[in-house]
């Protein structure tokens, strides 16, 4: 465990907790894309298939349970909670899941390190995680109102993967193992997707004005 990875995990943890807290306290999911949250629940499910078979460390298992629990409870809140669901903007959040899920699945079947179920599922989760934020970014551009918490949530999500890239660079130089090129590519693509959001986030933060994404 290195500082980049710990910082990345904490940033990631913080992002899902910020979102869960926002939805739980103000009982609203305005500006949040249910599609993205469902994709993240799928990412964690396919990523952590080995949670009960391969024990790596207590930290690893606890964090996996937190990510699985928080992502599914966010989906539950937006879908089932009688108050929260009213603030869900389903007419705007129309990104089709299968536009992302199917290409990632096909890609994972053809481009992976080992053609086993677990390995293909793990690779699928990497590809899907890279693009899962798209429905959320589309929703932000459509609704054009980004409340602070949602902006912070997206920013933290982007920051976590950027920290992971630093972690991979660090491990590449300090440990005899190599980071799989698939992990690298998916991680870099994911971070680049946030790049334009980061740009506008910093602009709004610097000029101390409300965050506006160009249409």
């Amino acid at each position: 465990m290195n500082i980049f990875r710990l910082a990345g995990d904490m940033t990631h943890l913080f992002s899902v907790l910020v979102l869960l807290l926002k939805i739980h306290t103000i009982k609203s999911c305005a500006g949040i894309s249910l599609k993205t949250q469902e994709l993240y629940a799928l990412v964690f499910t396919t990523r952590y298939l080995d949670i009960f078979t391969d024990f790596i460390s207590l930290y690893n298992t606890v964090m996996k349970l937190i990510f699985l629990g928080s992502s599914f409870s966010i989906v539950w809140y937006i879908r089932r909670h009688k108050i929260v669901r009213r603030s869900y903007d389903k007419d705007q959040d129309t990104f089709r899941h299968y536009f992302l899920v199917i290409p990632c699945l096909v890609l994972a079947v053809f481009i992976n390190h080992k053609f086993t179920f677990k390995e293909v599922m793990w690779t699928f989760s990497l590809y899907l995680e890279a693009v899962a934020i798209l429905p959320q970014l589309v929703l932000l551009q459509r609704t054009r109102n980004i409340d602070n918490l949602t902006g912070q949530y997206v920013f933290l999500l982007g920051a976590y993967r950027a920290l992971y890239i630093l972690n991979w660079i660090y491990r590449h130089f300090t440990e005899p193992h190599y980071v799989h090129w698939i992990t690298w590519i998916a991680g870099v693509v994911q971070t680049l997707l946030y790049a334009d959001f980061f740009y506008y986030y910093f602009q709004s933060w610097k000029n101390n004005e409300k965050l506006q994404l160009p249409a």
């Binding site: 990875r5 990523r47 391969d54 790596i56 690893n60 990510f67 440990e175």
Partner: peptide, 10 residues
């Protein structure tokens, strides 16, 4: 590490 590189990551 016995596990592959990024398999011990989240």
């Amino acid at each position: 590490a016995t596990t592959e590189s990024s398999k011990d990551e989240l």
